[in-house]
Amino acid sequence: MTATMLDCCAIAAALCATFMAGSRHLKRNILFYTLQTILLAFATAIRGSLQSEEQLYLIAIAIALLKAISIPLFLRWIVRKLCIYSDPGIMIAPPLVMHLSLILFACSYFEIASIGHSKGSSMAASASASLLLTGLLLMLTRRTALSQIIGFLVIENGIYLFAMTQTTGMPLIVEMGILLDVLAGVMIAGLVAFRIQKSFEHIDVTQLAELKDE
């Protein structure tokens, strides 16, 4: 349980996000999201043992239960219901998005180094910045509404990782509130995607920009 292991968990989580950017399959994206969230829960537990704070263990368990089990299960259910298994992507092909997200990782590393050190490790900070940017990239380069939800979840993971590694940690009650908000947000977004599919027969966000008068 050392700081290096925390860094390794953070880098592996960022790598999962990078692979998500490279994959067209929605189910594979959800699998990588699950893996990433489990790694974050591990990182939280390691941070808890480093700072000897018991409440971080509770948060780790809550993350594992809510974000790593129930949200992926719900998303998989939505994917099955909608019968949309892959996302063609817009503008940039997924393999190139993957390389782009790696370049963003490198950029965020040097940016974090130039901002200057807080008390947390700079490797974990750059991993969380890269999670944030990769989530943004996912939302920008994907076509289906489900990918937008997944990209939003990756951004949320990035923000959480940044807060967890760079500050002494938020109070338990705030953390739980955020987790419940995310859960409710994903549920609502998933159901809205379901409704969109029902009324428009597609969930392509590029075609949702025009208003229809029917």
């Binding site: 997924p94 393999p95 370049i103 990782f105 590393y109």
Partner: peptide
């Protein structure tokens, strides 16, 4: 096939970035 090779390139690029980053620190 290019997609599969992209994964190999991703691994190598990441290794490069990390080693450059370590050199910078």
């Amino acid at each position: 096939d290019p997609e599969f090779i992209a994964y190999a390139l991703t691994m190598s690029l990441l290794a490069c970035f990390i080693s450059i980053g370590q050199g910078a620190t």
